[in-house]
Amino acid sequence: MSRSLTPVWEALHTVADPEIPTVSIVALGMVKRVGWDDEGIDIDLVPTFLGCPALDLIRHRVVRAVAQAAGLSPEMVRVRWCTEVPWTSDRIRTEAHGPLRRMGIAPPPEPAEAGAGEPVPCPYCGSRDTRQDNAFGSTACRSLHYCRACRNPFEAMKPV
């Protein structure tokens, strides 16, 4: 059994949050640790929001993708949700920003604290002439906004 981590990471890059299909869980900062031992592969994931209903589905997809890539049976891929480090929007990688915008979702400010109270730039036209309509959106991690410049409603990743 080859213990290379390369195919494991490649497989993780193919797994997306089902509610943000353009962005992998790696780019979202949800993968904390990957490691081999004699019994298989351990993967520690960081949940974004604890009430996110996609967590079980993500776990399932990770097991399937990694087992296939590494040539293991699904039981040998052990996924653990860890809370040792809290997920924060600062964990979202810059490489995710483009794909997020293409979905009509503004990336979070960096760092999260810097953006408090500031208008969120529109993911479509870049204007800062926007308003927040709702701190809560279609998913736990997003808020709802409106761009006065291009007159599009859009969503934003909440700074947490």
Partner: peptide, 17 residues
């Protein structure tokens, strides 16, 4: 409706933990 549903979902997630 969206806000309260989201808050309810958060609280349920915390209860599950």
């Amino acid at each position: 409706d969206v806000a309260f549903a989201s808050i309810a979902q958060d609280e349920l997630g915390h209860a599950a933990m």
